[in-house]
Design a protein around this nucleic acid. Structure first.
Ligand SMILES: NC(=O)c1ccc[n+]([C@@H]2O[C@H](COP(=O)([O-])OP(=O)(O)OC[C@H]3O[C@@H](n4cnc5c(N)ncnc54)[C@H](O)[C@@H]3O)[C@@H](O)[C@H]2O)c1
Ligand SMILES: NC(=O)c1ccc[n+]([C@@H]2O[C@H](COP(=O)([O-])OP(=O)(O)OC[C@H]3O[C@@H](n4cnc5c(N)ncnc54)[C@H](O)[C@@H]3O)[C@@H](O)[C@H]2O)c1
Lengths: 235, 235
DNA sequence: ACGCGCTTGTGACCTAAATCACAAAGTCTG
DNA sequence: CAGACTTTGTGATTTAGGTCACAAGCGCGT
């Protein structure tokens, strides 16, 4: 099973297990954890946990479970979080500032090492400990600080340009908060986080469930049964 | 094809098409759009666009494409965005404030109608136009304002409690920014947005690609060819 | 040493989604 | 109005992922 490529879906869940393991490691009561417990904590099912972990290797002990510390280390290593990765934020508006002053990244393997904007009233000011630099200095400072992750928090319009600058500066990993699709060279990975999209998805299920409830209510009054048999839940 | 339940994956893409269509509708040059153009803009392939749209109905014209305005309306309707949905934010720290003062929600179908916190130095203050209320008043104010979406922006520890309060107040849709898995009754939908997880996923691919590049480099120097044949790209 | 209960690791199976590929239906041109 | 050209809509096929179910492995008690 080992050395098979790790499925994308599994990669996306490893951080969730990591989080769970961290909280177990904190209160030192539990040296070991079963796939079942971990599944509970991560909100998935136990078979999935076991299969996911089996891609990393046979780190469990039958009849016992997984050693918390050891598994923690293995996942950390697999995710490449053994040392803090330097990240840069581009665009220091509402969101960029919130991200920049967020203390939680450090304990999860990241370090905000540089900030960039183009607005003269922002460039040169400090946000937290770090001075905001002009976007034109991106390439130099990325090289200087060894930045490997770029976080786009500009308005949507300049997002494409910013992504290109990042790619040009040698950055291969981009997290994009702007509601815009950005195109990058094939060796660059972009992940998009769009809060409005998340809300719109919620809206869809909200409306659908409401429609189902309404239909059921109506049919109840009419004395018929089961108005729409496709009443499945999301997720 | 109509009246088949819309696949989850399709629902997640509809907002992306919506965004693309909005930008087309703005510059009024194009009355119509082909699946190919839309695919380009949304960053997916054309067949997927057509299949996705076909779940909504046959709104296209062969040889021509889709009418921008009409499609815009149909997607808006399908997502339940015909009127602004009232949302509440719980937890007005860095992130909560950024969200509360974000102007972009209105134009995407949402309205921040209430704010909640428990910290005495925050409760009673105004953020933007809205006064921050105490979490204990949640149920009343949710009923009063007709809030249907809850946005959790508290630290992870109280997230579960907040989710329960939201569910108790009758809210069926929750967007959770806290890095914690929350359990809710089966009729409530939760979506989680975890920035650290996104960064950790990027970290994984970053490291993997780097490892591949290093291996290739090593083998190049040694004069051998193709060190690891499983050099597939993420996504 | 041995059997019992617990838990992993994984093949087999099932479901959802992505992709392919092409007939059907339209536009446009001369 | 025929024929070339576009583009949709959708069955068929492939791929990825989720779930099931159980043999194999381990610890512990006796
Ligand atoms: N604030 C939120 O809560 C929120 C919520 C959802 C989505 N977003 C998205 O996140 C992004 C940022 O939101 P915001 O509220 O912080 O916006 P904002 O307008 O407050 O800040 C944008 C910042 O980007 C800077 N900027 C503009 N062009 C730039 C460029 N070419 N290079 C570098 N910097 C540039 C501006 O000077 C400004 O400081 C937007 O795309 C927005 O749609 C924000
Ligand atoms: N700030 C960021 O950029 C960022 C990035 C990633 C993740 N997050 C996550 O988002 C959440 C919020 O982050 P933040 O930086 O705004 O934190 P913060 O500490 O600045 O703010 C948290 C707010 O929640 C309030 N609060 C605490 N307990 C509460 C309760 N029981 N009910 C209501 N309100 C309560 C606090 O009074 C405070 O105002 C955290 O879980 C954090 O991990 C934030």
């Amino acid at each position: 099973m080992r050395n098979r490529p790790i499925p994308e879906a599994t990669v996306a869940r490893l951080p969730v297990y990591l989080q769970a393991l961290l909280s177990l490691a904190e209160d030192r009561r539990q040296m070991t954890v079963s796939s079942d417990e971990l599944a509970q904590m991560a909100g998935v099912n136990a078979a999935k946990v076991r299969k996911d972990l089996s891609y990393l290797g046979s780190y469990g002990t039958r009849g016992v479970g997984y050693d918390v510390e050891y598994l923690l280390y293995q996942i950390t290593r697999e995710l490449g979080l053994t040392q803090d990765l330097p990240a840069a934020i581009i665009g220091l508006g509402n969101l960029g500032r919130a991200l920049a002053s967020f203390k939680g990244f450090a304990e999860r393997g990241f370090k905000i090492s540089a900030l960039f904007d183009v607005d003269d009233s922002v460039v040169g000011t400090n946000v937290g400990r770090i001075k905001v630099r002009h976007l034109d200095d991106l390439k130099d400072i990325v090289a200087e600080e060894g930045v490997v992750i770029g976080i786009i928090a500009t308005p949507p319009a300049p997002a494409q340009l910013v992504a290109e600058r990042l790619a040009d500066a040698g950055i291969k990993s981009i997290l994009n908060f702007a509601p815009a699709v950005v195109k990058v060279p094939p060796d660059v990975t972009v992940r998009k986080v769009d809060l409005s999209i998340e809300l719109q998805i919620l809206s869809f299920y909200q409306q659908r469930n409401q429609a189902i409830a309404t239909a059921r209510e109506a049919s109840r009054r009419l004395g018929t049964s089961d108005p729409s048999p496709q009443a499945r839940r999301p997720h």
